[in-house]
Every structure is written in structure tokens, then in C-alpha cells.
């Protein structure tokens, strides 16, 4: 079974994602404190990461940068999901190595699943 790491400080949203992804057969792990994202990724060894951009302590860009600089995590596809809808933010995330970006207010859960399946299959 494929493993998905969720990084988001929204405590309700991240749990709903986890529950619904597990119902689809994925093994998931969640990180609410972005400072733990890198270490959890190394331990959990996910096949896919869903990363929020706006988080306290360490934002999603920094997490993405750290993930892509580390040999243990550099090849894991990271999809950025954010409340931000600014194209510049997506370009910045893509330059840092994100495979895709979506605005939380414009993507449905079904579309999110399709995106995950596209990269995992």
C-alpha cells in the first residue's frame, strides 16, 4: 500500500484528509508542526507528500527546500496545497521542486485523489 505524508497545521482538515485517504486504502501519517516534517518524512518514508504553504514556525517553502536538499527525501513527490492562489507562489514552489500546486478553495477531494493516483501509478 502507498504511503502519504500530510503536512498541515489545520488540525481538523489534516485529520479529515487522513481519514478519507485511509478509507481509499492509503497508509498516512500527519505532521501538524512543520518543524517535524523532514524527520517524519525520513522515518515514515512516504511515496507522496501533501504540503501546506502557510504554517507557523516554518512555512511550506522552507519545508520543501529541506525535503529537496536531503538525499533521503529529495525524490519524494511533493504536492503543494494552499489557501494562496497567487501564481508567483506556485512558481516559487515549482522552482523548489514541487510536482504540482493547488488552491484549497478550488480543488475537490476527488480531484486531489486523481492527482495523487496520477503520480503514484
Amino acid at each position: 500500500m502507498k504511503r502519504i505524508l500530510l503536512v498541515d497545521d489545520d488540525k481538523f482538515l489534516i485529520r479529515v484528509y487522513k481519514s478519507k485517504l485511509e478509507a481509499r486504502g492509503y497508509i498516512t501519517e500527519m505532521v501538524e508542526d512543520s518543524e517535524n516534517a523532514l524527520n517524519t518524512a525520513k522515518l515514515f518514508k512516504p511515496d507522496f507528500i501533501i504540503l501546506d504553504l502557510i504554517m507557523p514556525k516554518m512555512d511550506g517553502y522552507k519545508v520543501l527546500e529541506l525535503l529537496k536538499k536531503d538525499v533521503e527525501t529529495e525524490d519524494i513527490p511533493v504536492f503543494v496545497l494552499s489557501i494562496l492562489g497567487n501564481e508567483d507562489d506556485y512558481i516559487r514552489a515549482a522552482k523548489l521542486g514541487a510536482i504540482g500546486c493547488a488552491q484549497k478553495t478550488k480543488i475537490s477531494f476527488e480531484d486531489m485523489i486523481k492527482t495523487i493516483e496520477k503520480y503514484l501509478n
Binding site: K11, F12, R15, K18, S19, K20, A23
Partner: peptide, 13 residues
């Protein structure tokens, strides 16, 4: 400890 949030999410199933 987010116990209630977890229960609400669980009930969503």
C-alpha cells in the same frame, strides 16, 4: 489532545 476533534472526524466515516 484533540480527542474530540478525532471523534468528530471518526464519525465522518
Amino acid at each position: 489532545e484533540n480527542k474530540i476533534i478525532n471523534e468528530i472526524v471518526e464519525s465522518l466515516k
